[in-house]
């Protein structure tokens, strides 16, 4: 439990750092040049970490399902949707909607156990928790809009 929460905290913190760095790259290069670089760096780092921790075992053949090969396309979908959303709504509203959808889908996912994930039974308490968090996101994002519009960086 504590372990899971700690990993989520570390991941979230690094996401915010990465968003800032990526937006710096994006100030000079285009969206797809930036995305290509970011994913290339991500692959190189993941591969090196894998070699470091697992050595040659990293490359042992494993039972692959065909869809594993296409999971990377989701990332391209993310970038496309965020760019369009931010263009049409502005960063503040777009990011508020993105965060809300992330959390809403997470709850759906746990409740239905899609893709063979362990089901976490849906309870009213969970729904209330998620709604309070969404309320917090809305207050955070829309509560002081004037200075938030300066950047696209919040979600890139």
């Amino acid at each position: 439990m504590a372990m899971g929460l700690l990993f989520a905290l570390v991941a979230g913190t690094l996401v915010s750092v990465q968003n800032v760095f990526n937006s710096k790259v994006n100030e000079w290069a285009g969206r797809w040049a930036t995305t290509t670089l970011v994913l290339g760096m991500g692959f190189a780092a993941s591969f090196l970490m894998g070699l470091l921790f697992e050595g040659g075992k990293l490359l042992q053949p494993k039972p692959m399902e065909p869809w594993f090969w296409f999971s990377g396309l989701i990332g391209v979908g993310v970038v496309t949707c965020l760019v369009q959303g931010i263009k049409l709504l502005g960063p503040t509203y777009a990011v508020a909607v993105v965060l809300t959808a992330q959390l809403g889908f997470a709850l759906l996912w746990d409740s239905f156990g899609w893709l063979g994930l362990d089901r976490v039974p849906f309870t009213l308490q969970q729904l209330v928790g998620v709604l309070v968090i969404v309320g917090g996101i809305v207050v955070f994002k829309l509560g002081g809009e004037h200075s938030a519009e300066k950047k696209m960086e919040a979600f890139e």
């Binding site: 899971g4 990993f7 989520a8 991941a11 979230g12 800032v20 970011v38 959390l103 997470a106």
Partner: peptide, 27 residues
């Protein structure tokens, strides 16, 4: 900056395995 994704993905996956999707995304 993209290299951070290695730790982000590792953290995200490990958290989902331990506490489920909702709590992971929320935190």
């Amino acid at each position: 900056g993209g290299a951070l994704a290695a730790i982000i993905i590792f953290g995200n996956v490990t958290a989902i395995q331990h506490v489920g999707v909702t709590l992971t995304i929320a935190v």
